[in-house]
């Protein structure tokens, strides 16, 4: 049945809406091949239809219609596959910060990696252009309650430099009292844990 492989791609995305499975190059090229085959068959049939018009016999029009419908469907599935992957990738940029973990990066096609770099650059450029020194849109996603917060480190992160020059060693389970604006990004990335009394 036509279009089955293309829908497989969509089903892959539906199975895990918040993460990216590896870019399925094989399936994408299979869908492309199916489309090429359908278009070629249609072109052959259209040509022979022209020649046979004078003869009686059944028209190949329904056949051509069917194949054409399948081609359109495949195009839609391919476009939706790529589009939805990019949307998930965009959300990832906001949630993981500037650098994606390597195992997620492995799942991207090289065009997607390029897109992500360009998107990050556009975002950084935009953030720099607001105000005098720029504004980090990724901070203060929730209304802040206090200037300083208590955090506990969840992994062995290593050295972390604050804006005032002090360097902290972030070891697992160490607790610190830090300015909110500086550690918010690390909390979102899962390196630190915000402790509330």
């Amino acid at each position: 049945m036509f279009g089955e492989k293309a829908v497989e791609l969509i089903k892959e995305l539906d199975r895990c809406p918040t993460s990216l499975p590896p870019y399925n190059t094989d399936l994408v090229s299979e869908v492309n091949n199916e489309m090429r085959h359908l278009i070629e068959s249609n072109q052959d049939d259209a040509r022979s239809e022209e020649e046979n018009r004078s003869l009686s016999g059944e028209s190949l029009l329904p056949t051509i219609k069917c194949r054409h419908s399948a081609v359109i469907r495949n195009i839609r599935c391919l476009l939706a596959y790529h589009y939805n992957r990019l949307r998930v990738l965009r959300t990832m940029r906001w949630q993981f910060g500037g650098v994606l973990p390597s195992d997620i990066k492995q799942n991207l096609s090289h065009l997607e990696v390029e897109w992500l770099t360009k998107y990050s650059n556009s975002l950084a450029q935009y953030m720099r252009s607001v105000g005098e020194e720029g504004i980090n849109l990724a901070t203060n996603l929730k209304p802040p309650k206090s200037l300083y917060i208590e955090v506990r480190c969840l992994v062995n992160y290593g050295k972390f430099e604050l804006n005032n020059g002090i360097v902290l060693l972030l070891k697992k389970n160490s607790r610190h009292f830090l300015p909110r604006s500086e550690c918010e990004e690390l909390i979102r990335q899962g390196v630190l844990e915000h402790l509330v009394s």
Partner: peptide, 16 residues
Amino acid sequence: HSTTPIETAAMVLNHK
């Protein structure tokens, strides 16, 4: 609860 902490991003949690 009286205060809600800043949370790890959902995708980061799932990934871990």
